[in-house]
């Protein structure tokens, strides 16, 4: 990871031009060539430093449902429950966390009503209750990392 990769990451977390030659424009801002920017993006996607390059959609404005959910799973059952939960395509990401509620995942569904259905299906499939904590209010989203 050199200074140019870092500059690309810092710049492109804040947006990408929507014009005929967006890579060319972004590259010019970064002081590199268009081909170099494309090659570096390909390399960073390939080795997984970047997970994606494209749009971040607003789930609710797309008409979808989104919620943060948690479960409390005994250690000896954790692996198999994680497998069952992750098998649901609506589970966008899932983290183990150090707490009595030790499994935390985000559900993204194509309609708001589907959230409740999927929750019930997860409860039936795993045998454990799911705590549903959809957002009530957003104070700040600035998820980016300065390198």
């Amino acid at each position: 990871m050199d200074a140019t990769d870092r500059a690309i990451i810092n710049r492109l977390q804040h947006g990408f031009p929507i014009c005929e030659q967006p890579y060319g424009q972004a590259a010019a801002e970064l002081g590199i060539g268009e081909q170099e920017l494309l090659e570096r993006l390909r390399a960073m996607l390939k080795d997984k430093r970047l997970s994606r390059f494209g749009p971040m959609y607003h789930a609710e404005r797309m008409g979808g449902g989104l919620s943060l959910c948690a479960m409390s799973i005994p250690q000896n059952d954790f692996e198999q429950v994680a497998e069952k939960v992750n098998a649901f395509p609506e589970v966008a990401h899932n983290y183990a966390r150090e707490h009595a509620l030790n499994m935390w995942f985000v559900l993204a569904t194509d309609t708001p009503e589907r959230i409740q259905q999927v929750l019930r299906e997860i409860e039936e499939s795993t045998g454990y209750p799911v705590y549903n904590m959809p957002k009530k209010q957003e104070f700040f989203i600035g998820l980016h990392f300065t390198l």
Binding site: I8, G15, I18, P55, M56, Y57, R61, H144
Partner: peptide, 26 residues
């Protein structure tokens, strides 16, 4: 270009750009 711009102005697309894997970045 116009449709993507409209979707971004209306907030359907929050932003275009990269999504990092923060873990892989340290």
């Amino acid at each position: 270009i116009q449709r993507i711009r409209n979707m971004q102005e209306d907030g359907i697309i929050k932003r275009m750009g990269i999504v990092v894997r923060h873990h892989e970045l340290g």
